[in-house]
Amino acid sequence: MHSAEHSFTGWYKSSFSGANQGECLEVAVGHPDVPVRDSKTPHGPVIAFSAPHWTTFVAAVVDGRFDA
């Protein structure tokens, strides 16, 4: 984990985030790793995935592997 104080730029809300459900992720583009943060706490911690791990995670979300 990284502190959000790092100067990651290019944040955008993930298309997989819920509209008004409070389950919103933001992802920053243009970095060697893929920084991810909770949109409700933009100054909170950032998790940085390697590009291959991020691709695997997104594929699992799309496949519904995290559905309750």
Rank of each mutant, 00 (worst) to 15 (best):
M1A: 15
M1R: 14
H2N: 12
H2G: 00
H2F: 14
S3D: 14
E5N: 11
E5D: 10
E5F: 07
H6Y: 13
S7C: 08
S7L: 10
F8I: 00
T9A: 12
G10H: 09
W11C: 08
Y12V: 12
K13M: 08
K13C: 06
K13S: 09
K13T: 07
S14E: 04
S15R: 02
S15W: 06
S15P: 02
S17A: 08
S17K: 12
G18L: 03
A19Q: 12
N20V: 11
N20I: 12
Q21M: 06
E23I: 09
E23R: 14
E23Q: 12
E23K: 14
C24V: 11
L25Y: 11
L25K: 03
E26F: 04
E26L: 02
V27A: 01
A28R: 01
A28P: 05
V29G: 13
V29A: 15
G30V: 10
G30F: 06
H31R: 01
P32C: 02
P32Y: 10
D33F: 11
V34W: 01
V34L: 04
P35V: 03
P35K: 07
V36G: 03
V36K: 08
V36C: 10
R37P: 13
R37S: 09
D38K: 05
D38H: 07
D38S: 07
D38M: 02
D38Q: 03
S39R: 02
S39G: 00
S39I: 00
S39F: 00
K40S: 04
K40M: 01
K40E: 03
T41H: 04
T41N: 02
T41F: 05
P42C: 01
P42L: 01
P42K: 00
P42E: 05
H43M: 04
G44C: 03
P45N: 12
V46F: 13
I47W: 09
I47R: 10
I47C: 06
F49W: 12
F49T: 10
F49D: 08
F49S: 04
S50P: 00
A51Q: 14
P52N: 02
P52W: 00
P52E: 02
P52Y: 01
H53M: 13
H53K: 13
W54Y: 14
W54E: 07
W54N: 06
T56D: 11
T56H: 07
F57A: 08
V58S: 03
A59R: 14
A59D: 11
A59T: 15
A59C: 07
A60D: 15
A60W: 12
V61M: 05
V61W: 06
V61L: 14
V61G: 03
V62S: 09
D63E: 15
F66R: 13
F66G: 06
F66C: 10
F66V: 10
D67S: 13
D67I: 12
A68I: 15
A68L: 15
